[in-house]
């Protein structure tokens, strides 16, 4: 399984589309690695600078209908090669969501009010998300450690449960749909 914990990147907008995530002009690349510098290059989001704000981030938190538009799997790949294997949102476009799980990555949907709460508590602060795949929980914290071991008392801490279907979980565990289909069909 891939890593689903680490520093959180907040993208405070709905309908972020695949052309914003990775513009079509980079679709001529035939390796995933080549996409690395261009992630979110064309995003329209005030105060966000893709060339400085993506480094060291591991978890994306965003709003509704994330990944709408083209079917390009270059979008999940561009995240993957930047060390981001999970996007948490209040909603996803179907193809993007499926592409994530097909790659053994995660696209986790949370209720809109939960996402609102996460944004109001953590956006703008250095936030870590610890994903526990057994308990199916995210631990959001501002107290420093990705593994949640720091118990500094002034830090914010929230434990948020999530659900992933049995099938999606099987894809994540198998490392993606090619492996899964190969074992099963």
């Amino acid at each position: 399984m891939k890593n689903f914990s680490g520093k959180a990147l907040f993208l405070d907008r709905s309908d972020i589309n695949t052309d914003e995530i990775i513009p079509a002009k980079y679709l001529t690349e035939i390796t995933k690695e080549a996409l690395k510098p261009y992630l979110l290059e064309d995003i329209v989001l005030k105060g966000f600078n893709p060339s400085t704000d993506i480094e060291n981030m591991s978890v994306v938190i965003t709003r509704d209908n994330f990944g709408c538009g083209s079917s390009r799997e270059h979008a999940p790949w561009a995240f993957e090669v930047n060390g981001i294997n999970i996007v948490i949102a209040s909603g996803f476009a179907r193809i993007f969501r499926q592409n994530m799980f097909n790659c053994g990555m995660m696209a986790v949907e949370l209720e809109k009010d939960v996402i609102d709460r996460i944004f109001s508590l953590f956006a703008g602060k250095t936030t870590f998300v610890e994903t526990n795949m057994e308990k199916m929980t995210f631990t959001f914290s501002t107290d420093g450690m990705a593994d949640g071991t720091n118990d500094s008392s002034d830090g914010l801490r929230e434990i948020i449960p999530f659900t992933v279907s049995e099938y999606d979980l099987a894809l994540v565990k198998a490392g993606g749909w090619v492996n899964y289909a190969d074992q099963n069909y």
Binding site: R72, E73, Y167
Partner: peptide
């Protein structure tokens, strides 16, 4: 679909 679904489609003729 994305490339992975396409890949499985090409190989196995199925899609989820």
């Amino acid at each position: 679909v994305g490339t992975t679904d396409l890949e499985v489609g090409i190989l196995k003729g199925v899609c989820a």
